[in-house]
Design a protein around this nucleic acid. Structure first.
Lengths: 171, 171
DNA sequence: TCGCTTAATACAACATAGTTGCATTAAGCG
DNA sequence: CGCTTAATGCAACTATGTTGTATTAAGCGA
């Protein structure tokens, strides 16, 4: 268990290092670890979630994390998702990510997931004189982990958190 | 000019007063003026935009504006729009607003408009085990006022502001 | 019209997310 | 191995929004 987790981390670090090296910029611990966190996560992470882990393990300053995240975005290695809680979330970018895609936000655990569905040609009519350049779509509801916990409540979000998430939030 | 503007204000204040009275709660200057601002505006307003006007004219505290806006939302007289700049925007609710609807954000003047188009049945496929409860859709681009100013640039947002908006922002 | 009750407001202090400036450190090169 | 400078760490700051509490005024009945 411990070993698998370690191998996972190492794997993501190696991937991260390679991706960063490809940009031509310096390969630093902060960049590698932030990107590795994003690659490892199966959902979008907030700055706080990333920073608290890295401060613990690597002593990386929170401002550095902000700057690394912004740099990753500029290099198209991550993308930034705006939510309804005034907090940016970040996701590593893979091949499927380049298109405009929708996001899913769980009303219970508040995690944000990318939906690998392009939303380019959605049928929205604009008033005369307006020009669309970009679209953002967020679906809210219950994720696969939270749905079972909330089946018996009518709209019972915010009640319980799945163990896996509670653990994440404690970190 | 001055007179028309005054009559407009008075008209919106009267409407606002009536709407607030219907809730059964107390009709106060703060509530009337905040709601009147929202009714008058043809786009969503930030807390700051509302507060700065009211502090000038009526000496209303910014915290009161926050509380009034939250109250209006609870009473379904306004709705709250989350954007990508970590700032809430508010819109008066009329009959057409009750449905889930899309928003338009101008990349140039940064104003947010409501699009009166329901988005309930958009064709988004979710992964197995996920349940949708709600959708949020934002179209970004250039509004009718900014498009002419940006026609000659390729993606030239953030360059110029239409006079009407520059005036608003100064207020 | 005048008090009375209490909902609503003003003010101060606080919380959170993110940014800026600058001195220090370390990545990568010759 | 040293040099250059990109990147980091630290401190201070901004912007948006929230909470606690004393004071004010809306609306009611007398």
């Amino acid at each position: 268990m411990q070993k698998i987790s370690f191998e996972y981390c190492a794997m993501y670090s190696t991937d991260a290092e390679q991706l960063i090296r490809q940009t031509g910029a310096r390969v630093t611990t902060a960049r590698v670890q932030v990107l590795a966190s994003l690659l490892e996560a199966r959902c979008a992470l907030t700055h706080q979630e990333i920073a608290s882990r890295l401060e613990l393990g690597y002593g990386i300053d929170r401002v550095t994390v902000y700057r690394v995240l912004e740099w990753l975005r500029r290099e198209h290695l991550a993308h930034k998702i705006s939510g309804d809680d005034r907090v940016w979330r970040f996701n590593a970018v893979d091949e499927e990510h380049t298109e405009q895609h929708a996001h899913f936000k769980c009303n219970c655990c508040h995690r944000v997931f990318c939906l690998n569905e392009a939303i380019r040609n959605f049928p929205i009519k604009l008033p005369a004189g307006y020009r669309a350049q970009h679209m953002e779509l967020t679906v809210k509801g219950l994720c696969a982990e939270c749905l079972p916990l909330n089946k018996h409540h009518k709209l019972g979000a915010d009640k319980k958190l799945p163990c896996s998430v509670a653990k994440l939030l404690r970190t």
